[in-house]
Design a protein around this nucleic acid. Structure first.
Length: 682
RNA sequence: UGGCUUAUGGUGUAACUGGCAACACGUCUGAUUUUGGUUCAGAAGAGUCCAGGUUCGAGCCCUGGUAAGCCAACCA
């Protein structure tokens, strides 16, 4: 009722269908169920945005539930970080829940299962149980403890709980089906003995429930209507349902599990285990290292919540595994920051520039627009003097006229300041440029309104005034991996693809003094360079900026790119047919396009289409056409088009050959009248 | 030698119960621009994994293949 036909993803469709079938909207309830054993990453953002997005859309509660059933791996630190990240993304959960809150209930239900003969205690070794479990292709067999008496099981389970047994010695298993084609149904473990303090329940328990036993029952306890998880849990659904069957009260809501594909991002990895390995191996500095695809890493890198939510929207939800290109993420953050980031100037690779006709020692305050995208953003002061830094790559002694920057004898504008002209250079003994000498058109000051100030020049450069500039550290990041899908190689470990140059620290960057006032987390556009944010490592005497993302750079694309930094994915091969020259392809392509729908046409339209094909056919070579003889019988239109084209070619003098004869013969034998006619005409 | 899932431009997603394959990113033109940014206008690029079938008509339905992912943790 709310939306206007915006297409639904398959999860939304399921919910819409449920609603249409009479499911009460006020019973809709979702949950986001992280295990507190690591930090959230951009893949989790997909799930967060899905669940909380559904909650917002349907005005339904969304619980945050920590799936904390394994005290060996879980910690309070992660709980806090997860809560922080979700709130930062802008979502608010209805209730903060913990699976551990349900330990008693789960235990009671387990007792019930034992009493009903549906669960038993097994004291075999893990190896023995694995052995009996079989393999995906061979069924399992019953172990020796499978048919113990209910009394014995009750006794053993009570003693497990009482701590009488060593960790790893006994487990409680559901008694389901050792021959099931689904390995998860071969008597899965419900409880194991773990003698470790839990972050919430302390030492109350020494037996802990397994995921499968816990998850569905927790959903049931919380009355979650749609339990959404990633595809690798698809097989667990059968178990999820089996467990629910055992305890389910038909008068209240029964949760349903649905699975969607997890989101992968190109040039990074997306599993907590691998992310943890990057941290432990010191490949990155921490979970919130700006190169990490974690929410905290992206935040520190300068990403905004809006950009990440938008990215989730644009990426969509589906059931096929895929790798989303980082360029989409970068697009999202550029789009957001372009609207909001204050424009400033900073020079990362400085070379000195002296304006010889500017009074030495003079300083003047210019005005610099805060954001041209936002007329209400105002302006700030910008000091100017005769000694400046500009970007080293913005100057060449000589260059062709595609270089819109400073050269000797050419004019460029200094952003928000004067138009200058390159006059000469000073070099050191090694031939490196140490100083560029320029003259300025002193009438051309920006905003002065003079005719000179509005002159068009070839380019505009950013700069900082040397006596006023503040020195800062700037950290530039490149993709963490050199391979698009680093963890998709069965023969190679993802760590082999780590990009050794993913971090570039620039100690001596110079920034305009306005930036002295910046607070941590503030976001700026360093004009012509990119978006930057003040890192938490900053101190009052040393500012540290992270480069969030560069501006789109169509200049860099034209260059052969001597820097291996900029990384274009391999260009696609536009030619599919097999080596025809580009120019000729279009005519045949046109013909194919027209032919495709040929059989749907009639009358004048048909005649027109035929004429178009015949006209285009003149430009087609036989070599191009021949592959089309293989066209499937089904694609009659294409075969007719090919036949018409062939007719034109034959008229032009193309000699008949066995392939042509076979194609014509097939045409004559076809059921389609048009095709037969065309074939006869030849 | 099994089971489950998926298959649409370079990438990610659409296409309501069959009706001339759409959107976004990316790529390429051109215009505008005191950011080689933004904005604007436009272009190229897919016969929907393959082979059959049903139908006036199939990406959607049927049959048979192929490929990829997941499944044998006292992890979640």
């Amino acid at each position: 009722m709310t939306e206007e036909s915006a297409s639904l993803n398959f999860i939304e469709q399921i919910i819409a269908d449920d609603l249409a079938e009479g499911f009460s909207p006020d019973k809709l309830r979702f949950r986001f169920p992280p295990e507190p054993n690591g930090y959230l990453h951009i893949g989790h953002a997909a799930s967060i945005c899905l669940n909380f997005g559904l909650g917002e859309k349907h005005n339904a509660p969304v619980n945050l539930r920590f799936d904390d059933t394994n005290p060996a791996k879980e910690e309070q630190e992660y709980v806090d970080a997860i809560k922080n990240d979700i709130q930062w993304l802008g979502f608010q959960w209805a209730t903060e829940c913990y699976s551990s809150d349900y330990f008693q209930q789960l235990y009671d239900w387990a007792i019930q299962l034992i009493k009903e003969g549906k669960a038993y205690v097994d004291g075999q070794s893990a190896e023995a149980m694995a052995e009996q479990k079989g393999t995906p292709t061979t069924p399992g067999v019953a172990g020796p403890n499978r048919d113990k008496s209910m009394e014995e099981n009750l006794d053993l389970f009570a003693r497990m709980k009482a701590g009488e047994f060593e960790q790893g010695s006994y487990v409680l298993r559901a008694k389901i089906d050792m021959a099931s084609p689904n390995m998860l149904m071969r008597d899965p473990i419900l409880y194991r003995v773990v003698k470790k303090a839990h972050h919430r329940t302390g030492n109350d328990w020494c037996i802990y429930p397994m995921y499968d036993w816990t998850h569905g029952e927790s959903d049931y306890i919380e009355q979650i209507s749609h339990s959404l998880c990633t595809l690798e849990f698809k097989m667990h659904r059968e178990l999820y349902d089996w467990f629910l069957d055992q305890i389910y009260d038909p008068t209240i809501l029964r949760p349903k599990q649905r699975e969607f594909a997890r989101r992968n991002l190109s040039y990074t990895v997306m599993s907590k285990r691998k992310l943890l390995e990057l941290v432990h191996s010191k490949t990155v500095a921490s979970w919130d290292d700006p190169r990490m695809p974690t929410i905290s890493g992206l935040r520190r890198r300068g990403y905004t919540p809006e950009s990440i939510r938008n990215f989730s929207d644009l990426s969509g939800i589906s059931k096929r595994d895929s790798v989303t290109d980082v360029s989409l993420l970068e697009y999202c953050i550029r789009e957001d920051l372009n609207k909001s980031a204050t424009r400033v100037m900073g020079v990362l690779d400085p070379v000195k520039l002296v304006i010889t006709n500017y009074p030495s020692g003079k300083t003047e305050m210019l005005e610099s627009e805060n954001n041209p995208e936002d007329p209400n953003s105002g302006a700030h002061e910008l000091p100017f003097s005769g000694e400046l830094y500009i970007e080293r790559e913005d100057f060449k002694e000589e260059a062709d006229n595609k270089f819109f920057r400073l050269t000797l004898g050419n004019e460029v504008r200094l952003k928000s300041a004067y138009i200058i002209k390159g006059e000469s250079v000073v070099k050191d003994a090694a031939g490196n440029i140490t100083e560029i000498l320029c003259t300025a058109d002193l009438d051309s000051r920006s905003g002065s309104g003079t005719e000179a100030s509005t002159r068009k020049v070839k380019g505009t450069l950013h700069w900082v005034s040397i006596p006023h500039a503040i020195k800062a550290e700037v950290r530039e990041y490149d993709r963490l991996f050199l391979e698009e899908a680093p963890d998709s190689h069965e023969d190679k470990n993802f760590m082999e693809f780590v990009n050794p140059n993913s971090l570039k620290v620039i100690k001596g960057a110079y920034l305009e003094p306005f930036l002295k006032e910046a607070s941590k987390g503030d976001k700026f556009q360093f004009q012509r360079l990119g978006y930057f944010t003040l890192d938490k490592d900053s101190t009052t005497d040393k500012l540290v900026f992270n480069k969030t993302v560069g501006l789109r750079d169509s200049w860099a694309k034209q260059n052969p790119a001597p820097a291996p930094q900029s990384n274009q994915p391999k260009q696609q091969q536009p030619n599919q047919g097999g080596g025809q020259p580009q120019g000729q392809r279009s005519a045949l392509n046109e013909i194919q396009k027209i032919s495709k729908k040929y059989t749907n046409l009639s009358g004048d339209k048909l005649a027109a289409a035929r004429a178009d094909i015949a006209k285009l056919a003149v430009e087609v070579s036989y070599e191009e056409l021949e592959p089309l003889f293989q066209t499937a019988t089904k694609k009659v239109g294409t075969r007719i088009g090919a036949m018409i084209t062939l007719g034109v070619l034959l008229d032009k003098g193309q000699k008949r050959n066995p392939e042509i004869e076979a194609f014509i013969a097939a045409g004559l034998a076809d059921e389609n009248e048009e095709l037969v006619n065309e074939s006869k005409g030849i």
